[in-house]
């Protein structure tokens, strides 16, 4: 018989591990991966492959040769970052920009802080925002997806995103109603299914919601951040819309257009960079929702999700130390 082991209790452990969480997120992203390949064709697959391989490669190099510590590329976190980065860029992005994005995501966004668990910002978003600022032209020329059920792949026609159309239209002095009536405008159903210009992963709200549902059932994410995020975004944009429907789009369009769904369920819920307590997560979600609408309506960029999440990431340590969980036996008051 081998030696008896002694250790402190508990002696049993849950099946869920870091690995299972990370691969759960990957599984949740599969519908959106298929949608992107369906609409953008082989280009989408190319972008995702380069991004994933780039992230895995940089993580491996940095862990092996720079930090000289254990190599943990099979824990799935770099894989998630790679796919999310690809989800956040247009399908026609040149390969070298993607490699730079992967290096920034992993190198600066994650490993420079000490690796998984220590990064204050979502690595994929760090990479995305870096690319957006450094290569604004390449990052905002979106290939148009083919029509739903259409044969083949559209040729490299580029066009603006739904939010881009709105922003441009508004600055040209049109009302929302005029913009939405124009033939170029995708409309609610197309936004839902994915027939709109945009980054790889953000176009189909339906596919993303399907994955989110999977993450909920597997308890990889909790309701707090998504509900608070969507709630605050809907309420804030709803108030604006009620004030002047000609200048502000309705909340539903806000949700379906752009990277809202992707950001809410896949990036704002990133465990490492979001608060740990339920109360804190609600504060985080509300803040991110407000900021997103603020940037979309009044900011220079048509899209505000990545900036909003990154800004709230910066607040996470503060939120963590101010919003404590409800302690057992704390509410009891005497006399």
């Amino acid at each position: 018989m081998s030696l008896l082991t002694i250790s402190g209790s508990p002696h049993v452990h849950t099946q869920q591990s870091v690995k299972s969480i990370m691969y759960g997120v990957v599984i949740a992203m599969i519908p959106a991966i298929f949608v992107s390949v369906y609409f953008f064709g082989i280009d989408a697959a190319r972008v995702m492959l380069i991004s994933v391989l780039g992230c895995l490669f940089f993580e491996w190099v940095i862990q092996k040769y720079l930090i000289k510590g254990p190599v943990t590329i099979n824990d799935g976190s770099a894989l998630v970052t790679g796919i999310l980065l690809a989800f956040n860029v247009p399908a026609n992005l040149p390969w070298w920009i993607l490699i730079i994005g992967a290096l920034v995501s992993i190198g600066i966004g994650k490993m420079s802080f000490g690796g998984l668990g220590k990064n204050p910002f979502n690595p994929a978003l760090v990479g995305r925002v870096f690319l957006l600022i450094s290569f604004p032209v390449q990052m905002t020329s979106w290939p148009m997806p083919k029509a739903l059920f259409a044969e083949g792949i559209t040729d490299a026609i580029t066009g603006p995103t739904t939010l881009g159309i709105i922003k441009e239209g508004l600055s040209a002095g049109k009302t929302i109603q005029e913009i939405m009536a124009s033939p170029d405008f995708p409309g609610y159903l197309n936004d839902m299914m994915g027939v709109q210009g945009g980054s790889l992963g953000e176009i189909s709200a339906l596919a993303l919601l399907l994955g989110a549902l999977f993450m909920f059932t597997r308890k990889i994410i909790t309701w707090h951040i998504p509900t608070a995020y969507i709630g605050s975004a809907v309420i804030f944009s709803g108030i604006l819309w009620l004030i002047d429907p000609t200048q502000y789009i309705d909340p539903l369009m806000h949700l379906l257009a752009g990277g809202m769904i992707l950001g809410v369920f896949y990036m704002a819920t990133d465990m490492v960079s979001s608060p740990m307590t339920a109360r804190g997560q609600i504060v985080f979600g509300v803040g991110a929702g407000l900021l997103t609408i603020l940037i979309r309506v009044w900011g220079a960029y048509p899209e505000g999700v990545s900036f909003a999440i990154l800004i709230m990431n910066a607040f996470t340590p503060l939120i963590n130390s101010y919003f404590k969980p409800k302690r057992f036996g704390e509410v009891v008051k005497h006399g």
């Binding site: 452990h13 591990s17 943990t72 000490g114 690796g115 998984l116 220590k118 307590t277 302690r327 057992f328």
Partner: peptide, 26 residues
């Protein structure tokens, strides 16, 4: 096999321990 603890990884700040704590601690 069952009595062995799993490898200790770095904290990913998922907050599950906080959710699980019946005393509302962190």
């Amino acid at each position: 096999q069952e009595s062995k603890r799993t490898t200790v990884l770095s904290c990913i700040r998922c907050g599950r321990c906080i959710t699980a704590c019946p005393m509302g601690l962190e």
